[in-house]
Amino acid sequence: MVDRVAANVCGYALLAWMWIRVSMSYRTSFALLTLGQFLITGLDFVAILVMFSNVDALGGFSLTEIAFLYGGSALCLGLADLLLGNIERLGQRIRLGTVDQMMVRPLSLYVQVCADEFALRRLGRIAQGGLVFGWSIYALDLDWTAARVAMVPYLLVFGTVIFLAIFTIGAAVQFWTAESSELANAFTYGGSTLAQFPLTIYPTEAIKALTFVVPIAFVNWYPSLFILDKPDPLHLPTATQFAAPVAAALLSFVAAAVWRTGVRRYRSTGS
């Protein structure tokens, strides 16, 4: 068991490293793509800056506070996107038959699909999110207690896991309908866009949906309520602000189950 996990982690690293070397053989193209990702995702935040030239607060949040929410969501999404961003093309792989080739190798199919065409250019998105996040931490006028400081890596780790799980579920659905990658994108990229703003600007029903249905609110919203010391519009118990690991675990469990069922279905239908 331990041996298998180790083999798969090594396998992921090997495949990812191989793709990095391939992309590095086209250095200029790599640099431009990374810069492009940085700039395109950066435009999002420019829009927020423009908005704040007219208003002082949005949903009770200042510009630096929104930068914190935005940066947290962008960083988590960026990390998840880097680690398994190409999983969303599973449907295409099934159609091309390349999934079969992966199944005759001594590594888990999941690891191979995630690592396939590993794209370091996605660091562009991470760099942009990190920049905004870092600036907000610097600019926020907060008493950085040990608990607040500890909450930052906590937010990033479990937020990333939540996005990883959502990406996985979205991809696994393609075992049933190969054309569903846009549906999955609506949840991942769409969800992260929602989470870039304070959820107080949305109707209560939307906040509930983002808490109990697609728990993207646990990525940055609830941890941020604690860090920024803001009231919870849903008045949930304070424990909710620390519940990200529970949401991450539950979602990962669902993701694993859906993925397994999908693979079993694939293996019983063929291509």
Binding site: D100, M103, V104, R264, R267, S268, G270
Partner: peptide, 10 residues
Amino acid sequence: KMLTGILVPT
């Protein structure tokens, strides 16, 4: 495909 484990036999 069944002999490689890609497909499960009925």
